[in-house]
Simulated scan of single mutants.
Amino acid sequence: MELNLSGKTALVSASTSGIGYAIATQLLEEGARVIINGRSETTVAQAVTTLTDRFGAGRALPLIADVSVAGGENIAATAYPEIDILVNNMGTYALSDFFLTSDEDWERMFSTNVWSGVRLARTYMKSMLERGHGRVIFISSEVALTPMASMAHYSASKATQLSISRSLAELTKGTAVTVNSVLPGPTETESLKGFIESVNPGLAYADAERKFISENRPSSLIYRLAKPSEVANVVAFLASERAALINGAAIRAEGGTVQTIA
């Protein structure tokens, strides 16, 4: 299926690695120009160079800004005043004993996972509504639907994203703007892969991955980690005109881990 994103400009927050990088790559594959965002000049430059080598000059654009702190969105708007697609991918996660999780831990989690998306949507969505077209996509998580005691602050932040996404979708009536969320399950990013390897020293990675799934996501139907590119495929579809009827939705991309019919 041709998604035909040629002529569109997308901003993917936190897109120098992991799911964000995969999303940026897939949007480039579909013809979009993509703003590559990160906090570090080095990592942004490396990602832009790699993607430019693959897709040609002027397609991958740099944005060095920490959008988890107030003012980061202004740096983005100054460099790129108008975009067609916003993917709020910036996020962090942590295992934490609820009784030992400090106010600062909660604030950091919400600043990264919630406020980054709120500020960027507030910055860019109004002009999308004025033009009558655009896409806003929040990268949430399956734990938004299945909160975990071992990461209460993370689960709460991801559930909050779903509420914000639906609220913003209500603003789009009568336009071709859509706002949706994507809910990945455990995904084979470098950080998660490193964690799995670190807690299973000496075990072959394939066996360690199966052990992780059996102990942490036994309800998974794919019974493996998702690939970042698989999540990116879902996001690219939602960013396209092909997904015009999908609005205000929470799209599960978690391999059937969530045991519900809706």
Rank of each mutant, 00 (worst) to 15 (best):
Pro147Glu: 00
Pro218Asn: 11
Glu170Ile: 05
Asp53Lys: 15
Arg33Lys: 13
Tyr21Glu: 09
Gln46Phe: 03
Thr52Leu: 01
Ala10Ile: 01
Thr172Lys: 04
Ser155Tyr: 01
Arg131Lys: 08
Ser6Gln: 15
Glu209Ser: 08
Glu230Asp: 13
Pro147Ile: 00
Val87Met: 02
Gly194Met: 10
Leu238Ser: 14
Met109Asp: 03
Ile139Pro: 00
Val118Gly: 04
Lys227Tyr: 05
Val143Met: 00
Asn180Glu: 12
Ala45Gln: 14
Ala77Gly: 13
Arg59Ile: 11
Ala22Lys: 07
Leu27Tyr: 03
Asn233Phe: 08
Gly71Ile: 08
Glu29Asn: 15
Ala70Cys: 05
Ala77Met: 14
His133Asn: 15
Val235Glu: 11
Leu28Glu: 11
Gly256Tyr: 12
Thr260Asp: 14
Ser17Phe: 14
His153Phe: 09
Lys158Asn: 00
Ile64Glu: 00
Phe237Thr: 13
Leu225Ala: 04
Met125Thr: 02
Ala45Ile: 11
Ile222Leu: 09
Ser96Leu: 10
Ala253Asp: 01
Leu129Gly: 06
Val87Ser: 10
Ser141Phe: 00
Leu238Gly: 04
Ile137Asn: 02
Glu82Tyr: 11
Gly132Ser: 06
Thr178Gln: 07
Ala206His: 10
Ile196Arg: 12
Ala243Glu: 05
Ser219Lys: 13
Leu168Cys: 04
Tyr154Arg: 04
Trp115Ser: 10
Asp97Gly: 12
Leu245Met: 13
Thr257Trp: 10
Arg224Val: 09
